[in-house]
C-alpha cells in the first residue's frame, strides 16, 4: 500500500484527536492573535453608537443552546454597548428554549454596567409564531405581550411607557440562527421601515450580504469571529475573543486536511490506484 493509500485509509478517530487538540491547546496556551474589525461589524457598531441617549433598542435574541456559542457573546457585547450609551433595551425571544439563555445574558450585561431591570431594560419573554409576533407588534406590542417575562404588566414598566409599536422603537437588533432573520427583514425593516442590524451564525451569515447592499440591513455580525470583533471594538475580553486562537488553529488543520486529501488522491492515482481507500475507513465498530 502506498503512503497515499495509507493516508486516505486513516482511522477518522485520529482526525477527531487532531481537532480536539487543535481546540484545547490554544485555550490552554493562548497567543492572543490580533483581531481586525471588519467593515460589516464596524457598521453594526456605528449604527448603535450613533443613537442618541434614551433611544429604545429592541433586541430579539432568537437562538437556543445549540448556537449559543456564537450568539450569546454577541448578545452580551451588544447589550453592554447599549447600556454604556444609556440606551433602553427591550429584550425578547421567539424561540421556546430561548428564555433560559436570554434571561441570564440580560442579567449579566446589566450587572456588568450597573443597570436595573424595568428602568434600563425589560425582558418581554418568549412568544410563539415568528411572523405573527413581528407583524402584530407593528400594531400593538401589548396585544402580543400583555405582561413581561416576570408577569409584570407592561404599563407599569418605565422602559415601556409610551412604547406600543415599532413607532416607539429606534433600532431593531436580531440575533438568530434561523429564518427569523428573513422575517425581521421582511417586516421590521421593509414593512415597518425600522433600522435593522443582524447578528447571525456563521452558517447563514453569507446569505445576508444582498440585504446589506440594499440597506435593508445596516450591519452584519457573523459567527463567533464577528462576536470577537464586536468585543474587540467594545474593549471587552469575552468568550468569543478567547476562542479565536483555537478557531485559527483548527481552520489551519482542516485546510491542511483538505489539501492533504487531494494531494494523496492525485498521488494515489499516479501510482495506479483509483484513489479509493484499501479498506473501509476506521470508525465505530
Amino acid at each position: 500500500m502506498s503512503w497515499a493509500q495509507r493516508l486516505l485509509s486513516v482511522d477518522r478517530r485520529i482526525i477527531f484527536v487532531l481537532i480536539g487538540l487543535g481546540t484545547a491547546i490554544p485555550l490552554l496556551m493562548p497567543v492572543n492573535l490580533p483581531i481586525t474589525v471588519t467593515p460589516r461589524v464596524e457598521a453594526a457598531y456605528q449604527t448603535i453608537d450613533t443613537l442618541p441617549e434614551g433611544s429604545r433598542v429592541l433586541i430579539s435574541m432568537d437562538y437556543e443552546p445549540d448556537t449559543m456559542a456564537e450568539l450569546n457573546p454577541m448578545a452580551i457585547a451588544i447589550m453592554r454597548h447599549c447600556f454604556r450609551k444609556k440606551l433602553k433595551v427591550i429584550g425578547m425571544t421567539l424561540y421556546p428554549a430561548g428564555p433560559g439563555l436570554v434571561e441570564p445574558a440580560m442579567k449579566a450585561a446589566a450587572a456588568a454596567e450597573g443597570k436595573t431591570r424595568n428602568v434600563d431594560y425589560v425582558f418581554l419573554g418568549y412568544k410563539s409564531g415568528f411572523q405573527t409576533v413581528m407583524i402584530g407588534m407593528g400594531e400593538s406590542i401589548r396585544q402580543q405581550y400583555p405582561v413581561d417575562f416576570y408577569k409584570t404588566p407592561l404599563d407599569s414598566i418605565p422602559v415601556m411607557r409610551g412604547v406600543n409599536s415599532y413607532a416607539g422603537i429606534d433600532l431593531v437588533v436580531n440575533l438568530t440562527a434561523s429564518s427569523a432573520a428573513d422575517y425581521w427583514i421582511q417586516f421590521a425593516a421593509s414593512r415597518f421601515k425600522k433600522k435593522l442590524v443582524l447578528g447571525a451564525t456563521a452558517v447563514m451569515a453569507t446569505d445576508y450580504y444582498p440585504y446589506l447592499s440594499s440597506r435593508q440591513l445596516l450591519g452584519l455580525i457573523g459567527g463567533m469571529k464577528g462576536a470577537a470583533e464586536y468585543e474587540k471594538r467594545m474593549d471587552l475580553f469575552g468568550d468569543a475573543r478567547r476562542g479565536m486562537d483555537a478557531q485559527s488553529l483548527v481552520h489551519v488543520i482542516v485546510s491542511l486536511l483538505v489539501i492533504l486529501g487531494n494531494v494523496a488522491l492525485f498521488a494515489s492515482r499516479r501510482s495506479g490506484g483509483d484513489g479509493t481507500p484499501a479498506r473501509p475507513l476506521g470508525g465505530p465498530r
Binding site: 451564525t201 456563521a202 452558517v203 468568550d239 476562542g243 483555537a246 483548527v250 481552520h251 482542516v254
Partner: peptide, 26 residues
C-alpha cells in the same frame, strides 16, 4: 464561489460550537 464561502463559514460555525464546549470543560 458562493457555496465555497458558505462552506468555509460553516466550518467556522461548527468549530465555534466545539470551542465553547471545550472552554466549559477546561
Amino acid at each position: 464561489v458562493a457555496f465555497g464561502a458558505s462552506f468555509g463559514y460553516t466550518v467556522m460555525a461548527r468549530v465555534s460550537l466545539l470551542i465553547s464546549r471545550v472552554q466549559f470543560l477546561l
